[in-house]
Design a protein around this nucleic acid. Structure first.
Lengths: 426, 426
DNA sequence: ACAGTTTCCCGTAAATGC
DNA sequence: TGCATTTACGGGAAACTG
């Protein structure tokens, strides 16, 4: 009967952080016969606790009762918006909390309930509804995990509230999952993932099953288990890249200049026959939130690929990425430093691609001599010969595989599906 | 009878930030005849409000009563330490707050009171004491202003609580003030200011009165009025330098490699006859928290001075200052870049001075080519001839003047005086 | 409109709990 | 002890408020 609207973290609905204000809205969808008194709505957190096991418990710190009002810009239905709500954890419930130890806090699902009661023609009517499952976090460091839960839940079930969802979470087919991943990039970074990029992600996540778009990925594989040999899971890695783009690479990403997700084999294949100075941009697979460039160098007729140590948010906040590309220099044995980056793959002259994105340095504070930071690599001749060519292209090999790209229509319908669901709560 | 001990911001006692925990301690200095019950102490914020005018009002959020205990490592006297105290502002006292509009929040003085009551041999005895004046802030951005107040108060009065002090604050002689300033640097940066540095500060603050160490500086001049032509006061400027040192320049400062405070004339005098490549380090006078180097260049037999655009905390957190000095390069018209910094004034070879402070780059993440940031200035030949030599040494001229350096003994006695006072509360 | 002041809250670091 | 989770709070920015 009523439609509640969810609290939102910046662009991330259904995640609430303790001690941070959130907003929620309920709408009464049925038209009531004239009610001559004001209709009060009360919101409660986790009203009906799941019977047995109880994990963390929270309560709403601030005032949780408000009167419904005729919605401004709408068909005159009643609605109420709770603002400045804030969650706090109940301490010392009864001894220890009975969490089964299997679920992490970001897999724990909660909900907001809304209740109202009114009398019409001697009839007392109780209204009640509640939100889609929420994830409660206490620090933004838990946001990626929480968001993974929200995505998985809404991707894989239509149940309005299955609080035990993560007790035995269903798998997602790669076709479903890749759609959501691309949607993440288009929503948060402004441009989705293309077929090739998704192909590399599929290989990374599925290995030998990558060719099968019906292959079902487990929740654990997606978000809980670490990538083999790395101290982070697939989603943590991907989300770190999303954050890097949002904060430091937005224009470059949106111009489609970042290939980003390329396997080692693919990189070599693409650059093999290219002119010296051809380069591409891709994300680090070994570290969280890093971007590097790989360029073609010609050494006595031998082609070889070099990659720079990845740039992370710290360095990028000192120096925008486009400027890094403009100014990057390699100096080998007291020769004049040279910028090895000439053509963005396949063959766009560097300045044609990045010219508009360069910063308008230098700064011109008069009596001073302007100074900029430039990134530089120093190659000693012994270093440059000590590593065999096969080691020059960094990071472990990825088995190439076929990958069924989702067509645009599917992609949109997915987007619509999630959007529709989210929209119910907005 | 009792000695309270003050809340502390990191190293800055007598300043309390709302919503942030602080600690305070009270000691009973007299030995009481055996008291067979526990002695409760209650602490109250601003217990006796000054009668008329009332400005902001605060209260202690957390539990404010505790039982005195025999102090662990001491002569067995009673003491109690309140931890996790937290201040919150009372809102909507009675309409508007009656602040006279003259004092800023960091000039508003407050205090903590401590009360206890006990009966001995039928006699009821009330004990009460209170703290030195406190400054309450709501954001760390107010810390410099608050600390200025604490310094000024404790420098210029021995009254234990004169809450109206800043209604008409006394002046400080330059001799008193310079001692405190030097003490600030030795306390927070590990090395005080020498005679020449204080001389430059004196000129900056006093102008033509700089030669007179008895000249009295007003509170307003020190902390409230902006420096002529600048959007900040003398103390805000100096404190920004202190912060810069604390966060980014500690080893360089403590090695005494930063001359720091040098007037334009003095700089020119010092460097005039020096060898090409001689440089000195000084703080920016035009911007908050900046450091630059000025070096000697020889151009067809003409000496000239160049200064680099000052480095501020943002750049220094991308690149440590010693590395900047090591790597700085000037490139003019496609010549091989050269580092113009050779000898730290007067004539210490650069690497002798800074060698130990260089970072141990590069980082060696194997498959990648390591990359570092280097600071670089590009000189176009037309630029380098367009500005007359007289403009090369930046920032407006400072009238040189004589300055009576405080001798070391005075310096210590000052330090002792403030320390003694602070110690009472610690 | 605006400046002084407070609130908000991310992101890092430290503390806490299990 | 180590890992998961929460708390603490500096710092930049937005919101507030006379």
């Amino acid at each position: 009967e009523k439609q509640p609207c969810m609290p939102t973290h910046p662009q991330k609905p259904l995640i609430v952080k303790t001690g941070v204000q959130f907003t929620t809205k309920v709408r009464l969808l049925v038209k009531l016969p004239e009610v001559d008194y004001q209709l009060k709505v009360k919101t409660t957190f986790d009203k009906d606790l799941p019977p047995g096991r109880v994990s963390r418990q929270f309560f709403i710190l601030t005032n949780n009762t408000k009167v419904m009002d005729i919605e401004d810009y709408s068909n005159g239905c009643l609605s109420v918006e709770f603002r400045h709500l804030q969650l706090k954890e109940k301490k010392y419930i009864n001894g220890t909390k009975g969490n089964e130890g299997l679920l992490s806090v970001t897999e724990e699902l909660h909900s907001l309930s809304f209740e109202a009661c009114f009398t019409v023609q001697g009839l007392t009517i109780d209204l009640e509804t509640c939100s889609l499952p929420l994830v409660v976090i206490s620090n933004v460091s838990q946001l990626p995990g929480g968001w993974a839960s929200v995505m998985w839940y809404n991707l894989l079930t239509d149940e309005p509230r299955n609080m035990a969802f993560f007790g035995n979470p269903p798998r997602a087919t790669w076709s479903q999952l890749s759609e959501v991943l691309s949607w993440q990039f288009s929503t948060f970074a402004g441009r989705g993932l293309n077929k090739e990029q998704l192909s590399m992600l599929g290989e990374k996540l599925l290995g030998q099953h990558a060719s099968c778009s019906d292959y079902a990925v487990s929740w654990s594989k997606f978000c809980k288990e670490n990538i083999l040999g790395k101290p982070f899971s697939f989603w943590m890695w991907l989300d770190s890249i999303l954050e890097l783009i949002k904060k430091h690479l937005l224009p470059v990403w949106n111009e489609n200049y970042i290939m980003g997700f390329v396997s080692k084999e693919m990189e070599r294949t693409l650059l093999k026959d290219k002119e010296q100075g051809t380069f591409l941009l891709r994300f680090s697979e070994s570290h969280l939130g890093g971007i590097t460039f790989t360029w073609v160098e010609n050494e006595n007729g031998d082609m070889r690929l070099n990659s720079v140590e990845p740039y992370t948010k710290n360095r990028l906040s000192a120096l925008p990425f486009a400027d890094i590309i403009r100014d990057y220099k390699v100096i080998s044995d007291r020769v004049v430093p040279e910028n090895p980056l000439k053509f963005l793959y396949p063959n766009i002259p560097k300045d044609d691609a990045f010219g508009r994105l360069y910063n308008s340095q230098p700064s011109k504070v008069h009596p001073y001599i302007p100074s900029i930071l430039i990134p530089i690599s120093e190659l000693r001749s012994n270093v440059s010969t000590s590593s065999p060519v096969s080691c020059q292209s960094p990071e472990p090999p990825m088995t190439p595989g076929e990958f069924d790209m989702l067509n645009k229509q599917l992609c949109f319908s997915m987007e619509t599906k999630i959007r529709r669901k989210m929209a119910q709560w907005q």
